[in-house]
Amino acid sequence: MKSSSAANIINGDLSKQNNWEVEFAKELSVSYKTLVLTDLQQTIFWVNAGFQRMTGYAADYAIGKKPTFLQGVSTSEKVKCRIRNKLNTGNRVSEIITNYKKNGLAYDCLITIIPLFDSHQVITHYLALEREAA
């Protein structure tokens, strides 16, 4: 998603506060609808406006929850395991996962999760870039 406000929020104060070392302009150059920022426990810390448009859930509902609240009966355990394993190694991961909108409709979500490292190479947060898969 090419959103100057989202890029400014992530690339500005949050990035400086946490000493993140990532090229946000490059990461955000791909078209994504939703940006989700979580802490190390994967609790949602911030979402962009595209989150509500894509999922139907307002930001104030999502903040404080884990993204797993979007999952349901058709969400693949294998995909969830691959995501966990990749994140546990400190690497970025891209997968297509079945999520559910607020209205109950399932959708395939192309998700790229980027671990955000500080200047000491310690992961402080995760940034998920999401869009509906074609």
Rank of each mutant, 00 (worst) to 15 (best):
V36E: 00
Q52W: 08
V30M: 11
T43P: 08
I63D: 00
S31F: 15
K26H: 11
I63S: 00
I63C: 01
T55D: 05
F51Y: 10
A59L: 04
F51S: 01
W46A: 03
T38Q: 02
A49G: 06
L40W: 13
T43E: 11
T34S: 13
I63R: 00
F51A: 11
F45A: 12
Q52L: 09
A58M: 09
I44W: 06
G56P: 01
K26T: 05
S29N: 10
S29F: 09
Q52E: 13
I44L: 02
I63G: 00
G50Q: 04
Y61N: 07
Y32N: 06
F51E: 05
Q52P: 00
G50P: 01
F45L: 14
E27I: 15
K26W: 06
Q52V: 04
L35W: 07
F51T: 01
D39E: 03
D60Y: 13
S31P: 12
I44Q: 04
L40V: 15
D39A: 01
W46L: 01
E27L: 12
T43S: 04
L28K: 09
L35S: 02
A59G: 00
Y61F: 13
V36A: 03
Q42I: 03
Y57C: 15
I63H: 00
Q52S: 02
D60I: 12
G50V: 14
L40F: 11
Q42R: 05
I63L: 01
I44N: 02
Y32V: 15
A62P: 00
G50F: 11
A59P: 05
L35F: 05
Q52R: 09
L35K: 10
L37A: 01
R53A: 08
Q52I: 10
L37M: 13
V47L: 09
V36G: 01
L28W: 12
S29C: 02
L28D: 11
D39Y: 03
M54R: 07
D39P: 14
N48I: 04
F51I: 00
V36M: 09
S31I: 10
L35G: 00
I44G: 03
T38N: 05
K26Q: 12
N48A: 02
I44T: 04
T55N: 04
V30E: 15
G50R: 08
V47R: 06
M54E: 10
E27G: 05
V47Y: 10
G50S: 04
D39W: 02
N48S: 03
V30N: 15
I63F: 03
K26V: 06
V30Q: 14
Y32I: 15
T43F: 08
A59F: 08
D39Q: 02
L40S: 02
F51Q: 04
T38K: 02
N48D: 06
T38E: 06
T34Y: 15
T34C: 14
F45W: 14
L40Y: 08
L37C: 08
N48M: 11
A49Y: 06
W46S: 00
Y32H: 12
T43V: 04
A62M: 04
D39T: 03
A58Q: 06
T34E: 12
A49N: 07
E27W: 14
Q42M: 03
R53M: 15
Q41W: 11
L37T: 05
V36C: 06
L35Y: 11
A58C: 08
V30Y: 15
A49P: 07
E27P: 12
V30I: 13
R53V: 11
K26I: 08
T43D: 13
T38V: 01
